[in-house]
Design a protein around this nucleic acid. Structure first.
Length: 188
DNA sequence: AGCGGGATTTTCT
DNA sequence: GAAAATCCCGCTT
């Protein structure tokens, strides 16, 4: 087992557990670190998930083992990144919807052309800020240019659970999680 | 503060 | 050919 064994869990459990963890990005000769503050869970039983209708070329990474990065392109101009969770062969992942800059805040604000919470309070904003695109799809989160660093679990009492944003199917499923009162959360 | 539309292209039917 | 796990800007209250 590796240090990311906590990802081998159901998508909603892993999504809760990922709150507070760090994403480290190695790019342009520097290290960028961000704390995950908002997530959404998707799995194969879920009509809103890319994996719902089975594996395709696009969702191949989702069906692989946990601990890899799943990046997809959408709306003709945006990338969103997910952390693959659960068993190999089962399509599940957790969307990173918002992060709080820990290291390299200037780099992120410069790439975004925005400052403060506007730099990283949305899934496509996170990717733009951290310079993540389709070339990073399938990255190993232990050894790759994008890494996941486990942090102490966020207390259940500090986590808010809601329905997900921006989907048309399974709108009621309460699989969105965020750190209550964190200013970088995309929306209440 | 809230609503509505436009941008822009990959992916799957 | 339509939809898309979004963002930004402008217009109206």
């Amino acid at each position: 087992m590796n240090r990311l064994s906590f990802l081998d869990d159901t998508a909603p459990s892993a999504a809760r557990r990922l709150l507070g963890c760090y994403i480290k990005r190695h790019v342009d000769g520097q290290t960028i670190t961000a704390r995950i503050v908002e997530t959404e869970a998707y799995d194969a039983t879920d009509a809103a998930s890319h994996s719902f209708k089975g594996e395709t070329k696009r969702t191949k990474v989702m069906f692989g083992p946990a601990g890899y990065l799943y990046v997809y392109f959408t709306y003709g101009m945006h990338y969103c990144c997910n952390i693959v969770v659960g068993s190999e062969g089962y399509g599940a992942a957790v969307l990173i919807r918002a992060v709080e800059p820990v290291e390299g805040k200037d780099y992120m604000e410069k790439r975004r052309g925005k400052s403060g919470v506007q730099a990283t309070n949305g899934p496509a904003k996170v990717c733009q800020a951290m310079n993540i695109d389709i070339a990073d799809n399938g990255t190993d989160l232990i050894n790759g240019a994008v890494q996941l660093v486990e942090q102490p679990e966020v207390e259940e009492s500090k986590i808010t659970t809601t329905s997900r944003i921006g989907i048309s199917a399974a709108k009621q499923t309460p699989w969105r999680f965020y750190i209550t009162d964190n200013p970088y959360v995309s929306r209440k």
